[in-house]
Amino acid sequence: MTSAQHIWIVLGILFVLLNIAAGLIWVERRLLALFQDRLGPNRAGPLGILIVLADTLKLFFKEDWIPPFADRWVFILSPAIVVGAVLMSFVIIPFAPGIVVADLNIGLLFFLAMSSLAVYSIVLGGWASNNKYALLGALRGASQMIAYEVFMGLSLMGVVMMTGSMRMADIVNAQKEAWFILTQPLGAIIFFIAGIAETHRLPFDIPEAESELIAGYHAEYSGMKFGMFFIGEYLGITLISAMMVTVFFGGWLGPAFLPAWGWFFVKTFLFIGLFILLRASLPRPRYDQLIGYGWKLMLPLVLANLLITGAVLLLLKN
């Protein structure tokens, strides 16, 4: 690949991702409405799709206010961190054979590292807001991340053991026979749950919990700074869905009537839909329940999963 091609790929992926993130505004609102027997935004443009444009414009033109009591620079920095960290994670996602920014041999490890960086934005944003709700949200975010980070990594290790590689392309190629959802179902479920927590989406939106903490760590944010958090969240959903697809659902693999990237996007969108369905249907657990659930149930489960995977692999080898 030439470097020119490479730059096109990078720009292309960036373009697609940002558009997906923005488009999710409309997708989520429409889907939620439909789940709730409503119609949702349907006025601007065909099927209301231009609500995306309207919303974006609105965010740009809203007063970009920095509270006088806030820690100014940290306050400005933290929305950028979340978008940056999530976009960095996409570096290792293979959208189709060859369409990847960097096919690292430590792909999964890089993903885990980057996605855990995103928590900095929550903690810093909540801290810099100098607001008790924001700080509480940030603290909740931090402890939730620590709890779920651990078994998120461990849940992927079964796949790594079976593949023998952390390179994403290797993982996809290893699923030509059977997707890892079949061989690692527990790992897949646990990874998905951890992913929800990682993106602090409902039902695990403890750090922002509107009914308890107004808006948690981003309570003081407005305008495009709030927009960055917003985009970061949608990018996070896309990232976890893409990871699910890549690691457990065969990535770009699929019957030939669709191109490889087509399969990838279809599968990813299904998971995004699942995220939205979760939001529409499940209530938020209590904070202590969430943390207890992580440490007391998920962690033992994922360790057991690793143990069994290891044992089976050893047995098969012998």
């Binding site: 439909l34 789940f35 709730q36 027997d37 409503r38 119609l39 369905l277 979760l278 249907s281 499940l282």
Partner: peptide
């Protein structure tokens, strides 16, 4: 029950809209 809930909510996609 969670899964059942999700399924039931999912079915609402095809309901007649109240609005």
């Amino acid at each position: 029950s969670h899964i059942r809930t999700m399924w039931l909510v999912f079915l609402h996609l095809f309901r007649k809209k109240a609005t």
